[in-house]
Write a protein that binds this DNA or RNA. Structure first.
Lengths: 106, 106
DNA sequence: CACTAACGTAAGTTTATACTAACATATAGT
DNA sequence: ACTATATGTTAGTATAAACTTACGTTAGTG
């Protein structure tokens, strides 16, 4: 899970995900969109994204096609939903309300 | 948004969030839970978390109390929901289904 | 006002991460 | 079998991020 977050937290990898978000792309196509960064570097990023579960890869001849792995994003969403339970917001709001009341009575 | 993701992607900051998730804590209390890391380092992490919108801070005398900022997490959740639109999953699933049918007819 | 407690901040150092260059592999075509 | 294309891998380097030490600040206390 934390691995997934770390995979997201790099601007190049973030861009890659934006790129393949709708249409799957080959490693070469992806690398072609980056200027000022070499192909091997992109390849390494693809490896990290794959390992983290945010991308999947399939082979097509000599090319490797990368596409979004929805499950990876779903897991992350679920984690965030569970992390900060909205029910706690209500409890906190109630607590603050009663505190204000007490202060006013002083 | 990306700032938020980067803020999450550090193990110390991740732990801090787990700690204050349910009960707000002072900077000193938080730093006290970390051995092998100094108080100033924790303070810097708190600054990053605050700047990213995941924590809020209020003063109480000489102490600073940190607590989760629900909006920060909500924004992140929303982003992830929008990022990979679930409707696309259905489209893709449908496409694959019809492909299988075509293959069977061969 | 002097002193302490609880912090944040800044400058410099260490460590982790991204990057490059050179090499390795695998598939397709001639 | 040879060559080209598309890509991954590895070792070493450069850059960014986290950490430490020393210092600064603000609110309470005698």
């Amino acid at each position: 899970m934390f691995e997934t977050i770390q995979a997201l937290a790099d601007s190049t990898r973030f861009e890659i995900l934006q790129m393949v978000r709708h249409n799957e792309m080959s490693a070469g196509e992806i690398a072609g969109h980056f200027k000022g960064i070499t192909r091997p570097a992109v390849s390494q990023h693809l490896g990290i994204l794959k390992k983290s579960g945010l991308l999947t890869q399939r082979r097509e001849g000599t090319r490797r096609i990368y596409s979004i792995r929805p499950e990876g994003f779903a897991e992350l969403r679920t984690f965030l939903e569970d992390f900060w339970d909205p029910r706690l917001i209500k409890l906190k709001a109630a607590a603050e309300k009663s505190q204000k009341k007490l202060r006013r009575k002083k």
